[in-house]
Structures are given as C-alpha cells and as structure tokens.
C-alpha cells in the first residue's frame, strides 16, 4: 500500500483543441455509456470557440467541500485528494453539487446521484495533446 496516490490534472488547457475525446472516454469506460452528460470531466468553450476551452473536473481537494456536506458519508476523502463515492450510502440530496464551487460534481439525473471523478486516468489515454495528466501527489497541502 505504499504506492503514491495520483490525481488528475488538466495542465495545459491553452493547448486543448476541443475534440471531446476525454469526455467520451470517461462516459464509455466509467459509466458504460455514450453521452457527454455522463462524464466526470466536462470540456466547455471559454466563451465561444474563438477563446479556446476550459476543463471542469475534480481538482482533488485535500479537504473536499463535497465530502463535508455529505451527511450519509457517501463521499469520503480520498488519499491524495478528492473523494471516494459509495453509491449505497447516497440519498440523492444533491448537496455535493452545490458545495463544489467549480462545478466539478456532475449530477446524474437518472440515478439521482453524483458522478465523481475517481482520478483513474482513463481520459488521459485519450488526450491527443497530453494536456490531461495523472500526477503523483507527494506533498502535503500547506494551509
């Protein structure tokens, strides 16, 4: 269990071409679906394609606000940042969505529960420009 935990990071968004391959990879592998809605990573334009793209994705907070508001403890802090989601405990209250001010908790209307990034890195394999990375989290967060 000594493996260094990793986090997903969108490092060079200025280089993004907006191909959406990452979103579709997340949807395909994680959610067993083909949909832009069911992806933990969301790519949007920064105000029209002229201005390039932004990625909305879990940034692996050390003290995640989504977990703090989760009363049934379905979201628990993960080693290396972010959260681990236990769907069995989820009551579908949706407070996690509001707690995440960057909008990285995607809501799955159908199952009435959040779609949470697990920092698995599958999307990284489908980023043609190496913008998405799986980074080791070695340092402690300094407050």
């Amino acid at each position: 269990m000594s493996a260094v935990p990793k986090r997903l990071a969108a490092v060079y968004m200025e280089r993004c071409i907006g191909c959406y391959s990452c979103m579709l990879a997340c949807s395909r592998y994680r959610m067993r679906s083909l949909s832009l809605e069911k992806s933990a990573i969301q790519i949007r334009t920064a105000g029209g394609i002229e201005r390039g793209f932004i990625a909305v994705v879990c940034r692996a907070c050390a003290d995640p606000p989504c977990a703090k508001v989760c009363e049934p403890k379905a979201l628990k802090p993960r080693k290396g940042g972010g959260v681990i989601f236990n769907p069995k405990l989820c009551t579908g209250c949706g407070k996690c969505v509001e707690a995440c001010i960057i909008g990285a908790v995607v809501w799955d209307e159908e199952r009435r529960m959040p779609i949470i990034c697990t920092h698995c890195g599958l999307c990284v394999d489908f980023c043609p420009h190496g913008i998405l990375r799986l980074e080791p989290v070695e340092k402690e967060v300094i407050w």
């Binding site: 071409i17 907006g18 191909c19 394609i49 390039g52 043609p128």
Partner: peptide, 14 residues
C-alpha cells in the same frame, strides 16, 4: 496561433 478540432476528432485540423 492555434489548432482546433471538430467535436470528436482528435486530429484538430482547424
């Protein structure tokens, strides 16, 4: 200055 892609094309020929 930059290249862009059509949705769901990893090439980015624009």
């Amino acid at each position: 200055s930059r290249r862009l892609a059509c949705s769901h094309c990893p090439i980015g020929c624009i």
